Computed example of a mutant assay.
Amino acid sequence: MSKLPEPIQDDINRAVRLEWWTIFWQATIVVAMAFVMGSSQAMKSAWVEDTLGLVPAIVFLLALHFERKSPTRYFPFGFMRANSLAFLIAATALFFMGGYLIYDAGSKLIMQEHPTIGPIEILGTQVWMGWLMIAALIYSVIPPVIIGRMKQPIARKLYDKVLYTDSLMQKADWMTGLAATLGILGVGFGFWWADSVAALIISVDIVHDGFRASKIATAELIDGAPRQIDSDAIAEDADDLKKVLEKEFPDGTVRIRETGRYMAAEVTGIEPPHNPPTREELWPGDKQEAWRFALLSFAR
């Protein structure tokens, strides 16, 4: 599949542009956060989450690069599953980094480590470092939330779980900013534990995102039935396609699996028809989405 389906070319191009914008803005956020991080555990967790925000965008672009490649001798079916592999990489990175941050923040809470957020001199004026941290956090929220909302409708059109997970993480970024801000204000008011508690909240959110995404990605890679883009439930269009194929080939057994953004169907127990219907004829919904039905095979 060296050329992506024509109906989604424009959406793919828009997604690519948004991911490059994500990398640019996320990089500026990571740098800004690093400058004001100090000894705050909440800021550290927020900085790590912002850094991890680069991973889905990067793996999406890498997966798309391989998806466009033609089949080779060693990969005769092409690279349609590159998207699934990229999804698993992004999910695994989230899950394990979130687990480490829970351990890190939890251990500091147990040991009662008191973070220090002191003043800093700017142009001869003493300014509490916490205000700079909060300003950086506000900045870290605005671009991701806007770009995340722009990605969601495109992700649904492309049935791209990497892009969709990325958009969810970015849309929910305000929660990270709020938790970290409350932690910093808590330290300012003398509640030393607020910083570690905020870091734990952020870390648990990271683990939740990673665990949910890894479940769906694993199902794809072990030939699971196509899942909905926003849950682990079977996709409705996959169920509808299965019914159409069962009606078209009543003596056969129909199985449908997910392969990246595409579906592959296999009908077993019958002789392959001489003139099988086209995928547009078999597709149960909008014919503009028939590109999703990438492969139909028969086996005795």
Rank of each mutant, 00 (worst) to 15 (best):
R149C: 09
E19F: 00
L178Y: 05
R68N: 06
I117E: 11
A57T: 04
D50W: 00
T253E: 15
I256A: 00
S70E: 14
A180L: 05
T253W: 11
Y159I: 10
M150Y: 12
G106T: 10
L88I: 09
P250W: 05
T268M: 07
A46L: 11
A42E: 03
A32C: 11
L52C: 10
K44R: 13
D232G: 01
V59C: 03
F189A: 09
L282V: 00
P71W: 06
D11W: 02
A105P: 08
A172I: 07
M150L: 15
E281K: 11
I146T: 11
V145K: 04
E248L: 01
Q26C: 13
A86R: 07
L4Y: 08
Q170L: 09
Y159H: 15
V162G: 07
W193G: 07
G177K: 03
A198W: 01
A42L: 06
K171I: 12
W283K: 06
L61T: 08
Y103I: 05
P76Y: 01
G124C: 03
E6P: 10
D251R: 11
I184V: 15
L61V: 05
A86H: 10
W192G: 08
G210E: 06
V187I: 12
K151W: 08
T72W: 07
G224N: 05
L109V: 01
S297M: 11
S297W: 02
V48Y: 07
I29Q: 01
D286T: 00
R17Y: 01
Y139R: 09
M97C: 13
V145P: 09
W128I: 11
A219Y: 03
R255C: 05
A294G: 09
Y100F: 14
T176L: 13
D10E: 15
L282R: 00
D237N: 08
L18F: 04
D50P: 03
Y139T: 07
T22P: 06
V267L: 05
M150E: 13
W193F: 15
H208L: 13
S40Y: 06
H114R: 14
A27S: 15
S231D: 09
P56A: 00
V145S: 03
S84Y: 03
I229G: 03
A198C: 05
G78R: 09
I29D: 01
A105K: 00
Q126P: 07
I8Y: 00
G224H: 01
G252R: 06
D173H: 13
Q112E: 14
